[in-house]
Design a protein around this nucleic acid. Structure first.
Lengths: 194, 194
DNA sequence: GGTCCTTGTTCAAGATCCTGGACACATGAT
DNA sequence: ATCATGTGTCCAGGATCTTGAACAAGGACC
């Protein structure tokens, strides 16, 4: 789930340099226990501790995490469970892929529980947005128009027009949407449950 | 000293996305206090916390630390206080620059207190090494030969020959040395104080 | 002026990490 | 065999990080 095996990588680097836990610990000014626990992923070290240890190897922090996915080549396929959820518990907003320089769009998998509402104060921000209602129904207000959209319906508008999403039904509503430019956190597409 | 302003970078990323501490906290499943304290560098977060927060931005950990020095352009100048010390308290071994792929040498600034000794079991490892005695005297054994080297003297040998350093004088001995390939921790250039 | 909301900071209590010392298991020397 | 040394793991206590709730400062609105 974490997506990065801190302990395993540290152990690999240590073995590579033919150091014992105690030897490395001495150079890093930590104890051997610390290194043992970290290598077993029994604890998640503080970055200050991790830095002390890496300095003693020596390996820079950026080198250490360089193997992290999602950086080099743009990812193409995403499993449902690896989408980062930026919701608040009630609401679920899953972003398809991390925001990445060079990407001109943000795609979201949104789930509005009954009663969910983006708020009375209308949203306004730069860019454009569009989406498809996958299941359930949603009340969408754009400018002066209010529409009830159901499964299979869709929308597309200039985000500078004041807009608001509201699930007035009694079932969950699922939407897949896209925004451009990629600022899903455009000053308040936050959602309030009422 | 740390060389990387975690708090400042986090704050910059958050502001960039126009999020409040509370908003980000909610998405990351941490509290606003945590983010406040981290941003002020009042604490050094655990990597698990940091990862939760970065996931909510979303920014990958490697991106976060990508600004770290010592990665992109090779560093050229090093202040004495920024050399990483890999000694054990008694002994001081300062490495000139972090080990870096593409570097074929490790350069060390070594300080042997009186009585310091690399141990009776001779060191043997791949590569070559050479150095200059900057001050004090050192007894260097290489193969069958034993030599007393003083200030200004120097040495160079194939590291596969068994070798040993010993400070038999009563003053500290300072040496600047170079190893190739860059594996200063080659199975035991560790130093024991006797 | 009020009141309301949002912002960032601070503080005690709880959770997690880190330490220092044990422990069990190896290997090599006597 | 018994030491002696080196390895990684485990455990109580202390140090550090994280939480939840308070606080003060700044708008917005009436």
């Amino acid at each position: 789930m974490s997506g990065f095996d801190v302990g395993g990588r540290l152990r690999a680097l240590r073995i590579e340099r033919d150091l014992s836990q105690r030897e490395l610990a001495k150079r890093a000014n930590v104890t051997n226990s610390t290194i043992s626990l970290i290598e077993q992923n029994s604890v998640s070290p503080s970055v200050s501790s991790l830095k002390k240890i890496l300095d003693a190897l020596p390996v820079s922090i950026s080198e250490f995490f360089a193997g992290e996915p999602s950086q080099e080549e743009p990812k193409v396929f995403y499993r449902a469970e690896e989408l980062t959820d930026i919701g608040d518990g009630q609401l679920s907003w899953r972003l398809i892929g991390a925001r990445r320089p060079g990407r001109s769009m943000s795609i979201l998998h949104e789930r509005y529980p009954p009663g969910a509402d983006t708020g009375e104060t209308m949203l306004e921000h730069d860019g454009e947005e569009g989406g498809v209602i996958v299941s359930g129904t949603i009340e969408l207000t754009v400018g002066n128009e209010v529409q009830q959209l159901g499964t299979g319906d869709a929308y597309y508008f200039d985000s500078r027009l004041p807009h608001r999403f509201r699930n007035v039904g009694d079932r969950e509503c699922v939407i897949v949407s896209a925004n451009t430019p990629p600022s899903f956190s455009d000053g308040g597409d936050a959602c309030h449950h009422v």
